[in-house]
Write a protein that binds this DNA or RNA. Structure first.
Lengths: 140, 140
DNA sequence: CTCACTGTAATACCATACATTACAATGAGA
DNA sequence: TCTCATTGTAATGTATGGTATTACAGTGAG
């Protein structure tokens, strides 16, 4: 089990937008060729990022821009823009209410797991796009 | 996106085994009725837990027992018993090597994400079955 | 010898992610 | 005004993986 491509793709896109700002027009086709996925995937992802207020997309001209400086955008922002706000784990919906374990499992395990998820989000909130950009050399 | 039932089911099973030790014979059918899934799911999960050395299953007689005390079994043990050891996120396999972002994304993003995953495992390692059992009353 | 139980294979079904094609809408630029 | 690249979105296809279910061989206690 693992998360889908979505968050990594979104991060990749935003890094490209930041990196090529003013140099290339970052259209969905251009971004798609860097990530190596279909341009439609890029457009959908850009749509989610736009809805979250992280990017602006030039509707007809083409190209996208970040709305904030890379050091002000965290992986948490990106994660929440493209992933559902749901529990990390799926606990069986209808455990047996006649069993003491069954009728308490949601409360007992769920509370711990949501704590783990919030720690994960905390981790994400401490990683900015600028951190990642620093690690990407301009040329080989 | 979220993880499957597997880990929560495994935890549920182990809590039942601990709770009903010496009271009921914890067969796969018995456990299945508490979790409310098919007994085959329970047997597969028990097989994984057995392979990880966390439980012993009485092959013919029926029933399972923990191999360690509940305070010595952590959610990390259970998680690793039932989940693949893989990255938390899936980064596109073939990004464009001609793009500076494309040829560095795995290293730059992957290292951060594996750190996040190891923090998650640390969290799991601090939660024991005994912690959960304490929160489950015997009767309503 | 019987029987309850485990272990496992086979199969079906369903949800979801990703890929791809198609096309309407739009405004910049010729 | 016309062309054209581009976005946004719908529709569809395909593959993967998780869960459900049936079936059955193997096994040792009683």
């Amino acid at each position: 089990m693992q998360f889908s491509f979505r968050m990594p793709v979104a991060v990749h896109i935003m890094l490209c937008i930041a990196k090529f700002d003013g140099v290339f027009k970052t259209t969905s086709t251009f971004l798609a060729s860097s990530v190596n996925v279909n341009p439609v995937i890029i457009r959908k992802t850009l749509g989610q990022l736009k809805a979250a207020g992280l990017v602006e997309v030039a509707a007809v001209v083409g190209g996208a821009k970040l709305t904030k400086a890379p050091q002000d955008i965290t992986l948490q922002d990106v994660f929440q823009a493209v992933e559902e706000d749901e529990d990390l784990f799926h606990i069986q919906d209808n455990p047996n209410p006649q069993c003491p374990v069954g009728r308490n499992i949601h409360r007992v395990l769920g509370s711990r797991l949501s704590m783990v998820k919030s720690h994960m989000l905390d981790d994400f909130s401490r990683i900015t796009l600028a951190d990642l950009l620093e690690d990407i050399p301009d040329n080989e």
